[in-house]
């Protein structure tokens, strides 16, 4: 950048306007975001009343105490399953929809796109309740449709064995629009001349997709996966709305997010525990950090990004 020295305020004079421009945002950000994050780390190293420094003993308690570990482990296992279901269903489905929306001369493309993305805009509260009502045996919508499709109706959301996959399916229904959009944008960026060349060489649509387009959008697969990972390891709202803070039946839908909430906020007769709450938060944070680093250091190095 070329600078005209005459026009720049003199270096030796204090340039207060810079502080005026920067201070409000940086103060707000530091006080409400950075400080609480550091304070979370501090609180996790103190006793529950905040009076004594206890080192890592809260973490020890979380990982070994029979009051904590089995419940944390269950929430962690559920979250991993929740994440895997999103990876196996949501992201391939998003890719399929994006690939179909990318087909040549498709009529009504923007209408499809707008409608397919619309559930993503709704709040968890709405989505959770809509599906609670539709799946409920009282209304009879789900039993009628199961009959029509020849499936035996069960109250899937209410059974211990099926409630977690059902909540995951609802979440997938809501968020499939996000991978769809990312993949669509990536597919749009694939240059037409490459595709044309492949077509001239006699590639079928199937070959064209897997041999040409898919390798080119592989970086987007990584971005979508890491966003799914971060989103799922923070998930709370849908379970809270559809199943309550107790993540019933019998904690079968308990995710790390709901476990964290109950730990610091308390539930039923159990009082909230800030020290253990921040400990759980720090562990979730470390899991997310570990996943993100894995993505940055392994995936991003291995996957070739083509300049398009």
């Amino acid at each position: 950048m070329k600078e005209l020295p005459m026009l720049r305020p003199n270096k030796s004079r204090p340039r207060w306007h810079i502080a005026v421009f920067l201070a409000p945002a940086l103060l707000l950000y530091s006080i409400v975001m950075v400080f609480p994050l550091l304070d979370t780390l501090r609180l996790s190293l103190f006793s529950s009343d905040g009076a004594n420094f206890v080192g890592v003993s809260n973490y020890q308690r979380l990982f070994t105490d029979s009051q904590w570990w089995p419940y944390f482990w269950r929430a962690l296992k559920n979250t991993v399953l929740f994440f895997l279901l999103h990876m196996l269903l949501q992201n391939p489905l998003g890719l399929l929809l994006a690939a179909l929306l990318d087909s040549k001369n498709l009529r009504g493309r923007s209408i499809y796109r707008t409608l397919l993305f619309s559930p993503t805009m709704l709040s968890f509260v709405i989505v959770g309740f809509i599906w609670q009502l539709i799946l409920s045996p009282t209304w009879g919508i789900a039993p009628a449709i199961s009959d029509f499709l020849g499936i035996r109706y069960r109250p899937w959301l209410g059974l211990e064995s099926t409630s977690l996959p059902t909540v995951a399916l609802i979440s997938i229904w809501q968020f499939v629009g996000i991978p769809m959009l990312f993949f669509m944008t990536a597919l749009l960026a694939v240059p037409q001349d490459i595709l044309e060349a492949a077509r001239v060489d006699g590639a079928s649509a199937w070959q064209l997709f897997w041999r040409v387009k898919f390798p080119l959008i592989l970086p987007t697969v990584g971005i979508v996966s890491i966003l799914t990972f971060i989103g799922n390891f923070n998930a709370f709202d849908l379970v809270y709305t559809a199943k309550g803070a107790l993540a019933g039946p019998n904690f079968s839908t308990d995710l790390l997010g709901t476990f964290f909430y109950r730990t610091f906020y308390g539930f039923q007769l159990q009082l909230g525990d800030y020290a253990m709450g921040t400990t759980v938060a720090m562990v979730i944070f470390l899991i997310i950090l570990f996943g993100s680093l894995l993505y940055l250091l392994v995936w991003q190095r291995k996957v070739v990004s083509y300049e398009l």
């Binding site: 609480p36 923070n234 610091f264 944070f285």
Partner: peptide, 21 residues
Amino acid sequence: LYALIGLMIPIRLATVSILKL
């Protein structure tokens, strides 16, 4: 850089401290 760090950290995890604040 300081301002950008916030893009990567889910603020929900700091909820206990935000509540105290």
